[in-house]
Design a protein around this nucleic acid. Sequence first.
RNA 1: GCGGGUGUGGCGGAAUGGUAGACGCCGGGGACUUAAAAUCCCCUGUCCUUUGGACGUGCGGGUUCGAGUCCCGCCACCCGCACCA
Length: 838
Amino acid sequence: MTDTRFDPSSADGRWQRAWEEAGTFTADSYSEKPKSYVLEMFPYPSGRIHMGHVRNYTMGDVLARYKKMRGHEVLHPMGWDAFGMPAENAAMEKKVHPGTWTYANIEAMKSQLKRIGFALDWTREFATCDPEYYGHEQALFLDMYEGGLVYRRSSEVNWDPVDMTVLANEQVIDGKGWRSGAEVEKRKLDQWFLKITDFAEDLLDGLGTLDDWPEKVKLMQENWIGKSSGLEFSFGLSNGEKLPVYTTRPDTIFGASFCAIAADHPIAQGLKDDPEVAAFIEECKKGGTTAAALETAEKLGYRTGITAKHPFTGADLPVFIANFVLMDYGTGAVMGVPGHDQRDFEFATKYDLPIARVVAKDASQADAPMGDEAESGDGVIVNSDFLDGMSVEDAKAEVIARAEDGGWGKGTTVWRLRDWGISRQRYWGTPIPFIHCEACGIVPVPKDQLPVTLPEDVDFETPGNPLERHPTWKHVDCPLCGAKARRETDTLDTFTNSSWYFLRFASQPADKPFDADEIAKWMPVEHYIGGIEHAILHLLYARFWTRALAYLGKFEVKEPFAALFTQGMVTHETYGRSVDEKPVWYSPEEVERTSDGATLKADGEPVDIGRVIKMSKSKKNTVAPDAIIANYGADAARWFMLSDSPPERDLPWSEAGIEGCWRFVQRLWRLFDQIDESATGEDKALARKAHQAIVAVADDIEALSFNKAVARIYELTGAAEKAAPSEARNFAIRTVLHLIAPMMPHLAEEANAKLGNTALIANAEWPSHDPAMLVEDEVTIAVQHMGKLRDTLTAPKGASKEDLEALALASENVQRSINGAAIRKVIVVPDRLVNIVT
RNA sequence: GCGGGUGUGGCGGAAUGGUAGACGCCGGGGACUUAAAAUCCCCUGUCCUUUGGACGUGCGGGUUCGAGUCCCGCCACCCGCACCA
């Protein structure tokens, strides 16, 4: 061949078309082969692929292509998480319909993805805003309703009075709407909920089976579910009412010196006629939306004048309204034990309440004074009547037992996890398939009338939910009685769309959401790859939906994702200057980077090189994948994504790095040209390296240690380049070609074709290795004196301890170091080292 | 505050308790060329009295013949949660 350069601008597209025409990556649900389901979290169609996507999808792609080479039937699909706010924002700003905007973005991103050469089964592509998809989602939602997992109740929401919309907590900034800047109100609205709490225990237990999930993610989910156990009991109040409280420390009950209730607790609300109480409650509501405010927030209380009778001592404890008690956890009321709870301690200190010790290191410390903070640790119960001398654990059990025997309380489990509120007062989402009828109440839309589609003729000129103000859409007849009725105008939280998309990828019949046999074939996902930002919500919701659908008898899968991998971010240096004391940022294209600094191309003056941080528009430190692929080709970009940084860590993008990848692509291209069929002769060392690399690269890919696989390939490449022509060298070169095939598929196909192979290398088998060739016959032995390296020597593998010791003692360097001292001991690790101790 | 993670050359990072720095990037020197690009070769942790040696994996201790790796105590940075009773 005469080409001295690999030209991706012609090769990339050629092979992408070849794969597409051959249907190389179309998954066959009825294949006899073992299956692999490789999935990356599907993207929101913002309109353009960023480097984070490229990294994410390259990792999955290498796995998918590798598994295929290993003889697996691979399902590697792609689609679009296409509902959500940005489309509505675009509609308002650009006067374009959310659907038009979204589908145009999908087209743009799809063509970008295709240019990177991902081994995706595009026949299964869908967008969650396709009526077909959300129609099936509505059907599943109705099934959940029938199964008792859906309910409606009044719930407090963040209401933006200007945009006339409900805001998520993270859209409320300092008590104001993020878009309108208006003061956010708390409003009670009837909202739809999914009963995720029914599955709290199962979702928690299931974490124990997820051996291939990062510990960190499991821990985050565990904390989010937040199981705690304790005692719920009621205080009798001086006003004749009962005050139920929940505590995880019933063992400290004798240390209780006050009670505290939340500002929105019914008892507090009942005292609102007193203007002082009303003012205090108002103050509690205002305080603290931001994290910083919460941290520094002072414990504030209002003494109600009501007292609570202690169930054992009969003492009268003052009841406070307090800003640190939350209505929506436990009973919204607590017993205050200042000695052994830090919040209670701070509160008691401020309001001069008794701080009693009821837990001590040992019985003799019963009267030890309290320090300047609460003691929440373990110990022995003291000053507590019948509990004295018990361990904390025994005392908890004893108090719960007495409460249950006495009928005034019971052991309880409390969860932090709340039911999932799924109502959104927005247009661009899945319509909730219900009808409100005066006579019949809430009526599900009959399944044969699904999908309930979104109306096309909507305007975004005025604030509020376009579905609500649409002239005709919501007016329907009741499916039961035929009377005039009203459609539900709320749409589903977009997290519901991503809670089952992996099922629809696996199976997409027209008449139902999925087919049980196909689900059984493909699920669970073997490799799920995405960002850590989805550690809790998306992954918990998807686990819940899978359980809920299994509970409804749809299939038997419980955990959708057998293995989870959370990849790091793509980062870049930042370039900036301080202009009038305000930072001004420059993009990498505007800057000339030299080895010791950077200058602005526009004026030639230096700019400051800032921290290496996640690529973001605001800091202008982004690099567009499009431009990179146009300049260097898809394979160099893919190789960069896999090189150097371990995949779970951040990857710093650099111009020099991509240049290096480009050079390597060309190096390989030249190497693949050097197969010499007429070459004869052996090169056992090189052959051994090739066999070792086959095993090592496979192991590294399976462990997702792509950076190590890359290093191995560099090594074998270097060795093959240096070697003289031989059969072994031809073998090594062919091996490199196959090892890089999952990573740099275009280069691999082009070289493979040049070598006269008519079959696609994408369909090739992973090279097999000879186990006998993995073993070295000579090893390098380190020789140490007192643990310090003095020499190295070469010995046959498996040499005896005696031989190695003799060889080591024969070393000049070793003798010089020993310098005649008496040898006390010689440690020999066969095939590794000899350490002489004097 | 609680929980988790990370710390190794100029940089990204390798290293079953056994030769620290594989591999890549940057940098330096050389070859080829009229010249450049491309390519190839060599060097590249610090220091010293340089056929050798000392020091060196955030800091301080410890275990061990031997510690980046194990144990104890610190420091720094990053991430998550946040008054959850």
